[in-house]
Write a protein that binds this DNA or RNA. Structure first.
Lengths: 175, 175
DNA sequence: TATCTTTGCAAGTGATTACTCACTATTTAT
DNA sequence: ATAAATAGTGAGTAATCACTTGCAAAGATA
């Protein structure tokens, strides 16, 4: 990975997250990264390839993020970490940018990465079962849906107070 | 409103909802509507004006949809109608298309229409207060966030089972 | 040092973009 | 009936799009 290659990736992440994929031209990415436009195609083949490279980098990020939750044995901790994950993202500048892109791409391509969420869903189902909830599977689904809703607000609603709601949520789950 | 004008609006709604605003060219809209491209600019000034016309039409839809909930006096009915609103949208073909566009535009422009939700939020807060909930305002926020999460799944997750989750939700709220 | 591969840039390519303009057909108002 | 306003078209416009090509510079390998 050369220096200019990383500059391209960083510029593309920022512009794609800010303006969207199809509204960002390769010439803009090149100018923002301070390289020639042709270099993008040398390294990433085409515009789609550039996007894939960014998303792939993100999948690793998601895996390590989920791994910590999935490996947790204390059921209450599983739920707490799931909720706090969203809170953490909302406060980290670079993480927020990355996840905003993730959701933007979802809406642009209309593809929800269900398989990525599966291990987390399983861990949550397990946690709710241990805690004696009546419908653990649906409780798990609901919590993940709440996460999607929170993500929407964090990304789109200016000045959204995430902390108040996450702490309210934790109270609801007796954490 | 002439016949061709409506054809343009209908075509734009369908294409914007399917492919996104910036990925849909005015020439495609014209071809899909079966009119000349110039007519779009005659009636709507520019591409942005076409989008505004569609969104405006939608605001009326939203107002009438919310009005029924806001005017309800029975607190349980307020909550039930709020939940069922999502379910209804997910089953109606044309409504689904319209709301999908609404969310797509939100993510493309990064503007969340908070003011539109305010009356609904107020009605929900009132309902939760009447039912003796400890934090009515936060309960209202949470339910609206759940709605956003559900909307995300309905639009993006293929074969998402909305009915199971909405009925689960209603059970949670003792409805 | 000589050769081969990778990295990088400038200047292109045809296609498509949003939008305009000159013009005709159709309503509407007087 | 006639003039004015509106509806509609089709062929343009310059700018931008994703992408290619030819060639030079820099590293790596021998």
């Amino acid at each position: 990975m050369t220096e200019k290659q990383e500059k391209i990736l960083h510029a593309a992440l920022e512009l794609f997250a800010r303006d969207g994929f199809s509204s960002t031209s390769t010439s803009k990415v090149a100018a923002y990264a301070g390289v020639s436009e042709g270099l993008i195609f040398r390294h990433f083949k085409n515009k789609e390839g550039l996007l894939k490279a960014i998303l792939q980098e993100g999948e690793e990020k998601a895996r390590t993020l989920f791994a910590d939750i999935v490996l947790e044995s204390d059921p209450k901790e599983v739920i707490r970490k799931t909720i706090d994950m969203v809170l953490h993202i909302s406060t980290s500048r670079s993480d927020l940018e990355f996840w905003k892109l993730q959701y933007k791409i979802k809406w642009e391509t209309e593809k929800y990465g269900e398989h990525k969420m599966e291990p987390l869903h399983l861990a949550l189902t397990n946690a709710f079962t241990k805690l004696g909830y009546a419908s653990p599977d649906r409780e798990a689904s609901l919590l993940l849906i709440i996460n999607d809703g929170l993500a929407t607000r964090i990304a789109l609603q200016q000045g959204f107070d995430c902390e108040t709601l996450t702490s309210f949520l934790k109270k609801k789950y007796n954490i």
